[in-house]
Design a protein around this nucleic acid. Structure first.
Lengths: 379, 379
DNA sequence: CTGTTAGCGCGTTCAG
DNA sequence: CTGAACGCGCTAACAG
């Protein structure tokens, strides 16, 4: 079924030219007379030759034409995050414009390291974690150009960064200006553990996810003692769980002093087995700072289910500015990050490195978007 | 900055063994004494050798370890579709398990054909259109194994298929059983044109997207003359536009006989410049069959905005069964397709082909899910 | 403009 | 178990 493919040499022979001439005719990068080129192309068509073998070409040229995008997450998980999709969209656009191909390398750190064995000319690492840094080391050994997206800048690694900290401060200040003093943070994951619950000092000390820390530090500039509820990642569902924990209480129980402390995955089971009532006003925050828009959407949903009106009874801010009405039915007050542009920038840095140009770090700023989910604290 | 990488030969020399021995030590596929292997590995570490060059290896072995996934859409667009994400998730899982890498090839048909020039051992084509068929031809010339996902089966091309037609009939029958007779279809795109509007016979004759046709034919078994409103693709926003067109009317205009005929993108502008009121009951459908869940969600949103209650005043069914509460806040009546499994199956077929096994087509069946968006027609 | 020559870095023979 | 030689398919230099 799989007929032996003809080689360039065969085509050259058929066209009665030398192999190198045939090669030039295909790559188009050399001076070949029109008549000769046509003869070669005709011979190729006759032999059903599909063009130079990419493998041989890449060995010879020392380039594979592939840029890899490595991320720690599963495809399933990563693609549920609109920010990640926007990153990829920007990257894909630039990569395609440069006529390169895009290798998807999910789940780095699980199983055999694809970054170590796959053909690639450069790698773009998304996310910040020890695993990612390991990949940097691998890439360095292979002398592959690497750029990072969403990693704290380091002298070793050209990176695309965002003003996570300052942006978070801006959000916190916005709430402070509205008079809020009882504020809680709903955080992204702080380590790989996907465990939900309050952020303890121990957990904070062991944190590996820089973006969560940065955003938290930014809030602390305004609310130094803000309590933090950590989620398992940027998902509406996670925000919903967090919202229930922060705002709700099992019916019949008199108000406990604080958020339930649990390392488990389900604080209040979602199956309806526990009926939730809103916490008394004095025992719940008047504003929530979610570290992503998806989390914010979940918090809002939980609030609505509990009969807590947003923004009248609760202000909620997010982060990211994903303008996908599909996902967020609310006009969220948030910081908009130019995710697609960040992807483009990362890809361009990788392309620069391929051209031997050492690119400077690119820093992006997010912009405040006043939505309809924040209001002055109700007295 | 980019130091010359050591080669296998250098490592061999350093370890005072022959190149072939060193090679065996790395690939692990040959009989090498433990002491020798350690000596080789030590030498590699000393020289900071990162392992065999993937390019050279792939030339020599005739395999690149890459499976490509080609799709017609942009990354941005494709990743907004949960079904596509589920496909990719299933594919990625199998590909990773086989220790292969996944090359993303979006926007085939636009610009230079990556399928033609990129290193790959096999390709998985998603979607059905002339462009995809072109890629099949290219792959054939390169004698690359190809499988298709979401393409009508053909003797040439191993494919993963779904019972689109029968499933659609089941949905239509469900509505018929509930007593609905004024039914409309909100369709996916029928060609590449992204134009919204009623499906005309001419447009139907020129249709290239098989899945839309199949799902329509299925409905016609029950509702032979069902009117169809074509959208620009599987997006909530598109469903919203369609819903407004089918259910709404600019305030002040007395009921026109039918859906507005337009080839433009905006039927009733979304900016609020036109105030919409619900069509009179007699002039609007009592049930809508959306060809995807995202479209259905958009229709429902439009209905709610117009004050038309679902399911009391309007029944809506979808297709896909994407159980992502993020996207669809409703418990939609729909046909659930096992999208992740379809992705896995497609990937396994590709892997089979790589092993020289000719796989049989895999056919999936979708299952009916009775949600809360359909009810008996109100008299 | 075209032909000749020499590898790219590795895997696989086949003798030792 | 090891070492030497060859070639995968192509392209970068040069020579003509």
């Amino acid at each position: 079924m799989v007929g032996k493919r003809p080689t360039l040499a065969a085509v050259a022979a058929r066209a009665q030219v030398s192999v190198s001439t045939a090669s030039l005719a295909f790559s188009g990068s050399g001076p070949v007379s029109e008549s000769t080129r046509e003869r070669v192309l005709a011979a190729a068509k006759e032999l059903d030759y599909a063009g130079p073998d990419p493998r041989a070409r890449s060995l010879r040229r020392g380039k594979s034409g592939i840029v890899a995008v490595a991320m720690e997450e599963t495809v399933r998980y990563a693609f549920r995050d609109p920010v990640m999709i926007a990153f990829l969209d920007g990257i894909a656009a630039e990569i395609a414009a440069a006529e390169l191909a895009l290798l998807l390398v999910p789940e780095i750190g699980h199983g055999p390291a694809t970054v170590e064995t796959a053909s690639m000319d450069a790698a773009i690492l998304i996310g910040c974690s020890p695993v990612v840094m390991e990949s940097v080391e691998i890439a360095r050994r292979r002398s592959l150009p690497v750029v990072a997206l969403g990693t704290p800048p380091s002298p070793e690694l050209p990176a695309v960064t965002l003003d996570d900290r300052a942006a978070s401060t801006a959000l916190a200040r916005h709430l402070a200006d509205l008079g809020h003093s009882r504020v809680a943070v709903v955080g992204l994951e702080f380590d790989g553990s996907k465990h939900r619950g309050p952020l303890t000092p121990a957990k904070e000390a062991a944190a590996t996810v820089q973006v969560s820390l940065d955003r938290l530090h930014g809030v602390r500039e305004v609310y130094p003692d803000v309590p933090v509820f950590v989620t398992g990642g940027s998902l509406v569902e996670e925000g919903w769980h967090a919202g229930r924990a922060l705002l709700g209480l099992p019916a019949g129980i008199t108000s406990p002093p604080s958020v339930p402390d649990t390392g488990g995955l389900d604080l209040f089971p979602a199956d309806g087995s526990v009926e939730l009532v809103p916490r008394p006003r004095e025992h719940r925050p008047t504003a929530v700072i979610a570290q992503s828009d998806l989390l914010a959407a979940g918090v809002i949903r939980a609030a609505e289910e509990l009969g807590i009106a947003v923004p009248q009874d609760l202000s909620v801010v997010g982060f990211d500015g994903i303008r996908i009405d599909t996902v967020i039915p609310h006009d969220l007050t948030t910081m908009v990050q130019p995710a697609t542009d960040q992807g483009r920038a990362a890809a361009r840095m990788a392309l620069d490195l391929l051209d031997g140009v050492v690119p400077a770090d690119v820093h992006f700023r997010s912009t405040f978007h006043q939505g309809a989910t924040t209001a002055p604290v109700s007295s």
